[in-house]
């Protein structure tokens, strides 16, 4: 893989595709019982036991205020590593690993560039499909969740009517 390329782990949330840099993904495990921790930060859904370690888990559907369309069979927990911490992300399904070149990544349109879109690092269009590249740092931050469901729709509409410039 060259410097120009990025490998993304792509997963589904409420019918949308999201991607995270594979370098940040530690492992993907099947859904298991999540123990709720009362009075923990709202972003934390609960904790799980990962081979003897206690890992916090975030429900991304809740985080992004989307409506779940998941098939519970395919639900997974994507364990990412960030700042020396392991954190689990609940997703509807993990679909694939995509190899994309950096110039295929378009930044989110300036029109919708406000705080809500901090989660997005970019958009990749592949074969009529849009993969939203997540900014993990923002996603994991303890800050208030923002209403981005609407934004997501806007983003995909905008992108599907454009043609992605590639060189």
């Amino acid at each position: 893989m060259t410097d120009n390329e990025l490998q993304l782990v792509v997963f589904e949330l409420a019918g949308e595709s999201f991607g995270v840099d594979i370098a940040q993904v530690k492992e993907i495990i099947t859904m298991q019982d999540i123990v709720h921790v009362p009075r923990a930060p709202t972003i934390v859904e609960g904790i799980i036991n990962l081979r003897g370690s206690v890992i916090p888990v975030i429900d991304l559907i809740k985080r992004f205020r989307l409506t779940s369309q998941g098939n519970s069979d395919k639900e997974r927990i994507v364990v990412v590593e960030f700042d020396d911490l392991s954190i689990g992300l609940m997703v509807d399904a993990v679909s694939e690993v995509l190899r994309v070149s950096r110039d295929m990544i378009a930044p989110p349109s300036p029109v919708i560039m406000d705080t809500d879109v901090e989660y997005l690092q970019g958009i990749v269009k592949i074969n009529e499909r849009l993969v939203i590249l997540l900014n993990l740092k923002r996603v994991l931050s303890h800050e208030e969740t923002h209403e981005i469901a609407g934004v997501m729709r806007q983003v995909s509409e905008e992108c599907s009517t454009k043609t992605t410039k590639t060189t």
């Binding site: 921790v37 009362p38 206690v54 916090p56 911490l85 994991l140």
Partner: peptide
Amino acid sequence: ELGSYIGQVPGVTGA
């Protein structure tokens, strides 16, 4: 420990 991501939770000292 619950970990630094969760931080201090009143009433729960760990798991």
